[in-house]
Design a protein around this nucleic acid. Sequence first.
DNA 1: ATTTGTCTTTGCGCTAGCGCAAATAAGGAA
DNA 2: TTCCTTATTTGCGCTAGCGCAAAGACAAAT
Lengths: 232, 232
Amino acid sequence: MTLSHHDLRQVNVFAEATDDDLQLVTRNGFMRSIEEGEYFFFQGDPAEYLYVLISGQVKLMQSSPNGKQVNIRTIQPWEMFAALGAVRKDATYPASAQAIQDSAALVVRSDFMSEMMQTRPYLAVGLTRLMTTLIQEIQARYRELATERVEQRIARTLLRLASQIGQSSESQTTSVEMEFSRQDLAEMTGTTLFTVSRTLSEWEKIGLIDAGRERIRIKDSQGLTKIADQSE
Amino acid sequence: MTLSHHDLRQVNVFAEATDDDLQLVTRNGFMRSIEEGEYFFFQGDPAEYLYVLISGQVKLMQSSPNGKQVNIRTIQPWEMFAALGAVRKDATYPASAQAIQDSAALVVRSDFMSEMMQTRPYLAVGLTRLMTTLIQEIQARYRELATERVEQRIARTLLRLASQIGQSSESQTTSVEMEFSRQDLAEMTGTTLFTVSRTLSEWEKIGLIDAGRERIRIKDSQGLTKIADQSE
DNA sequence: ATTTGTCTTTGCGCTAGCGCAAATAAGGAA
DNA sequence: TTCCTTATTTGCGCTAGCGCAAAGACAAAT
């Protein structure tokens, strides 16, 4: 698989890059494909590489000492992830990256990117911009987790995922088919598999969604929005 | 109040700055002092300035549409905050900054810092490094909120605060006196004022802490650590 | 078609923690 | 000192959501 510069410019950090710089990145990087369920890296590994997802879907998850897991973020194609190694020496990945669909990624050495950044402010600035986005998103999720009830969080998460996926795939169809297990969704919303299952069953009954094994499709996003926004 | 370069180098992002650059920053910035309870800025305001806390203590909090608040982060002296404006045009603050003690900050225009960053990679890289730290911290808090019980979260928060404060003040005394209301602590841990009160009362009874009105001192940090780490 | 493994559903009991209300305590101001 | 405001404590009832177990559904492999 070859990457055109046009493709790579979909990556926010590379949007303003010169052709030469993109050339450098692709020359120094390599492609890596893994199957559903496999990992790009594990929490605690030395952060030697950063990744740009080309196809598929990847979840970043963090596990606590006692073994429970939370889903920090779900990566869509053309997102850069695991970039922290580029700015911190001897960092280790704070999360594991598992493919939830067969996935391919462009892999670049952290220290190579780090060198590039020293002489190309646009790169460092772009990376900072990316990080502010991430911070804002996780802060919002944190607030939701702290203040909202499970039902609202699940609704909001479904809507968020639908918009992320709808954005990355060009299919602007109203109802996107999403592939997630109940367990995945539980980890994303900070609840349990059982509660997710119960909630989705309820919603399917009243026609808000259409759900199956590892598959959810939103039928009435307005109805979900109403649930997500209900103040009490 | 004047800021020596030595002082400013305590700020991580400025650690490697040249004297000239520090000069520029102080010349283009100004000091702003506010009293306990007042705000440096509010969520939703245009992010025109970034701040470096010089003295006091500030909490960054986010409020949801329905009015509930969470404490995103607590700022200690020599921390930079509200830096997102420097990399995003037309951004608005995603949180409000309220002084929980009388505080003073160095205030710098976002677009001035933005310009500096264009020609000084160390600044952009330093800012990115700062952001990765923030991301890691809030991710950890997110995981805790999702997987741990209230008791553990309160214990962990107390320990974290104690270490942060102990770090910024040079007093390496074993037990730091912390000034927080029960409400503050509730917002930091994603619980309610009542639960915090009950928990602290319990801990005071068994000698882990010493608490008063808007005041907490850890007496037995080992005991707290044990609570924070208990896996069940 | 049958088996096997995994994912999902659902019933059931339980409890951590919420939320209200009322009492109490601690400072600060007059 | 006394008053006033604000923070804290504590009792009490309640429920959202957890966690287990067992059954059911689906998909892939043989």
